[in-house]
């Protein structure tokens, strides 16, 4: 068979390269990651009082912060000067139904990975849903162009191999910023490599075909989040930390959901309560609250007046 030939392997879905690249990175990083796992975290150097202040769980998740920040900086430059402008052009030249169709087709292409991970997580009902989804969208949906399955209420699942590993108890390991591919952890990086194996049929294509499909998918996805990314960049106090926290929390929540646990509940106590000082703060809070309420009422009155004025201007 042609696609198992040497040439075929080389071509396979970028995955030949992707696997090589990632596995090299993994082998280099693993020992480094473990030695770097000091109690405070490599990125936050400081005095004893600082270590008391910083969140142990958070900084521990990022022993590679220094390297990650470097790669993140490069990725940011690449995005700002290359990918985002290209995505802006893409959004400008394509009508929205084309962009939706591209998303739908790519989702169909990636279904085998999701289906496989349903099975690996012993979620046979989800596997059934995903099988039906493929059948519907590939046939009535004209090869995935139209998402018929969603119209008939078959949910879109998002299982991936990183989640499957998490489901079986593998911890996420250090946070890892990958060049080009963006945020990951060691576990999820491995997961991505395994998942890409599920699109083995890409090996039937010549390499430029694979690049075009993946390229258009990336551009199209990026074009959907132009404003969101701009705003997040602008509003963040530390965009690297913002991305890391968002990624880690989202992944943790997904894995918790895969395990049937409640992630929020687990993180609860640390996040929402301070027992020793609860009373003192409570009292102070009430003071502030009363003052704020007074200010608010005043502001509301002012605002009502000005809104009416504005509405008046519009009519004119």
């Amino acid at each position: 068979m042609r696609w198992t030939s040497w040439r075929g392997f080389r071509v396979s879905l970028i995955s030949g390269r992707k696997i090589l690249f990632l596995s090299l990175m993994m082998t280099f990083l693993m020992p480094f990651a473990q030695s770097g796992a000091d109690p405070v975290g490599a990125g936050v150097s400081g005095t004893a009082s600082v270590s008391e202040v910083s969140e142990p769980s958070k900084s521990n998740g990022d022993p590679l912060e220094k390297m990650n920040r470097g790669i993140f900086w490069l990725n940011e430059k690449g995005d700002i000067y290359l990918v985002a402008p290209a995505a802006r052009v893409w959004r400008w030249v394509t009508p929205s139904f084309v962009r939706t169709a591209v998303v739908n087709v790519n989702r169909l292409i990636l279904m085998p990975a999701i289906f496989g991970n349903d099975i690996f997580q012993l979620k046979f009902d989800k596997a059934g849903e995903d099988f039906l989804r493929v059948v519907f969208n590939a046939s009535f949906g004209l090869g995935g162009l139209i998402d018929v399955a969603t119209m008939v209420d078959i949910p879109q699942n998002d299982e991936d191999f990183g989640q499957t590993l998490g489901y079986w108890g593998v911890p996420h390991g250090p946070y890892l910023m990958l060049p080009l591919f963006g945020p990951a952890t060691v576990r999820d990086g491995v997961g991505r490599v395994v998942d890409s194996g599920a699109t083995f049929y890409f090996t039937l294509l010549p390499i430029w075909g694979t690049f075009i499909i993946r390229g258009v998918d990336l551009l199209n996805l990026r074009s959907r989040y132009l404003e969101e990314v701009d705003e997040s960049r602008r509003d963040a106090f530390d965009y690297y930390v913002f991305m890391r926290e968002a990624y880690m929390q989202n992944r943790d929540a997904k894995v918790a959901r895969a395990r049937g646990e409640d992630y929020q509940r687990a993180a609860d106590d640390d996040l929402y309560y301070f027992d020793d000082e609860e009373l003192e703060i409570e009292e102070y809070n009430d003071q502030v609250e009363r003052k704020l309420q007074r200010e608010q009422e005043k502001k509301k009155q002012d605002n009502e007046a000005s809104t009416q004025k504005d509405a008046g201007e519009v009519k004119q």
Partner: peptide
């Protein structure tokens, strides 16, 4: 707090502010 797709606003700002203050 607002939690969008598992991402808590409070938790995210806490990490960012912690970083800036440190």
């Amino acid at each position: 707090d607002i939690i969008v797709e598992g991402v808590s606003l409070v938790s995210n700002f806490r990490s960012q502010f912690g970083e800036v203050i440190n």
